[in-house]
């Protein structure tokens, strides 16, 4: 870090990626402008805000919520996000008695179009190894405590089916508009590692 000496050798991984890109561009297997557009799409345009819009809609519109829980692929497609083609999306609902948690134990499957790219912890060995076996202790690390009688359901994502959680709408948000609700919904709540909190400064 911070080494700007231009004679210093490139770290091997940087050099390997540069090599691969240069070769693929030279062989016209990839178009450099298409690469830039992909980076912009996933870095600046697609993110958890997409999923937050879906959740807020489900909180204010019971018909949409029923559709989402029955056919999340179709319901989310109605928002027109650039989609993960060919993937089935499933929304699972948190209630006072059931808490859902999403993981990909084998790799890093994740609903990109709805939540953006996954955070490092989701792809990390400790989360993948522990989420299904000891969910309460993992949730505790995220500051989420559940009553003993709450059933925890684990959803192991795969190449065909991607899951996300419809969190519980927090108490004290009855007066909020759909747009205001969007701002409350976090990525972590849509993965089930946390809950959605009511906005600060309001009585819950």
């Amino acid at each position: 870090m911070g080494d700007h000496d231009h004679t210093a050798p490139l770290p091997d991984v940087v050099l390997r990626v540069k090599t691969l890109e240069s070769l693929l561009v030279e062989k016209k297997l990839v178009d450099p402008e298409a690469l830039d557009a992909l980076i912009d799409l996933y870095e600046n345009q697609i993110g958890p805000k997409n999923g937050a819009r879906v959740v807020a809609r489900a909180w204010v519109d019971p018909e949409f919520k029923a559709w989402l829980l029955k056919d999340a692929t179709g319901a989310v497609a109605s928002f027109g996000f650039a989609s993960d083609k060919g993937k089935t999306l499933v929304a699972v609902e948190n209630t006072p008695k059931v808490h859902n948690l999403v993981v990909c134990t084998l790799c890093s499957c994740y609903p990109w179009a709805t939540l953006g790219l996954p955070p490092v912890w989701y792809k990390s060995a400790p989360y993948r190894a522990r989420a299904a076996k000891e969910p309460r202790s993992v949730l505790h690390e995220f500051g989420t405590e559940l009553d003993d009688d709450v059933e925890i359901r684990i959803w192991d994502s795969n190449a065909e089916v991607r899951y996300f959680v419809l969190p519980e709408r927090p108490e004290g948000t009855e007066g909020l508009s759909e747009e205001e609700l969007v701002e409350l919904v976090t990525r972590d709540a849509m993965l089930g590692v946390s809950k959605v909190s009511a906005p600060k400064g309001r009585d819950a």
Partner: peptide
């Protein structure tokens, strides 16, 4: 423990951006 990073960026390094795009494009 599951280690988390506050305010995590989408990509940490320029080579990660390029690698991501190379995989998705191919």
């Amino acid at each position: 423990p599951v280690v988390r990073e506050a305010a995590e960026p989408v990509f940490h390094e320029e080579w990660e951006r390029r690698m991501f795009a190379l995989m998705v494009a191919t």
